[in-house]
Amino acid sequence: MRLFGVELRRLLARRLYWVTALALLGLLALIVGQVAVSSRPANAATIAAAEAESRQLAETARRDCRLHAPPEQQANCDSLVGPPTDQMILTFRFVTETEPFVVGASVMLALLGFVIGAGFVGAEWSAGTLAHLLTWEPRRLRVLAAKVAAAALGSGGTALLITAGYLGALYTVALTRGSVDGVGSGLIGSLLLLGGRGVLLTMAAAAGGAAAAALVRSTSGALGLVFGYFVAVELVLRGFFQGIGPWLVAPHATAWLMRTARVVTPGPCPTCDPRVITISMWGGAAYLGGLLLAAVLVAGLTFRRRDIT
């Protein structure tokens, strides 16, 4: 526990941790700001303004029609109308539009978690501090476990705060410049669960990043490993062999976040209909959990036997 406390304090003192967390926070703040600027509440004033704008657009359209339409179609010009008022008012509706924002934030937080976890362990290999640490705590599995746990909990705590702040900010925007109609405990609970799954995904990514860096002994190596996997396997290889889709990481992460994911694979014959495979939330959780466990175990076994020079 002492070791975990030391590792957690060290994680929170790292510049990379704060820079990446603040960068993501800034990006999410920009998104919220953009939503706030573009959203207008559907009240009497905005509806009246939208109706006036719609009438103006209709009048312009009728005038253009009379000038340019052939004589036989001139009669139709008077029937032209402006766009519906509800389409004129871009209102951020918390009930229907929040979920994609939270999913997007969760994906970004997971990436942040991986970078933080990989950087946390990779830096120790690069700086050569690990050898010195092991002369204080020679139980290597304990050392690695403390680092993985610190990366996961540190990133998870950050993700929790950012997700909560993001949801709060979106709700505030909806309340002041959009619509919170229909918001009830069911929706709030659903969004909190979605945010919670995002936090858990971030923790898993951070632990995976730490394990990957322990395995390849560098931050850049761990980042390259994951980037290479997504490019080579999830993009290129999947393009050639669509049948591998249900076995990849991305659909399972999607299933975990979105409660379900559908993966389309080719049918059994060239003329057959494609097959649709549904991955459940718990299926995604089992896959990601198993993958993480395997990564940590392999990293632990390798680290336990490796010569530290």
Binding site: A127, T129, A131, H132, T135
Partner: peptide, 12 residues
């Protein structure tokens, strides 16, 4: 123990 030049965390 000191083995070679031990490294510490540079930002600490």
């Amino acid at each position: 123990a000191i083995v070679e030049q031990p490294q510490f965390f540079p930002a600490f």
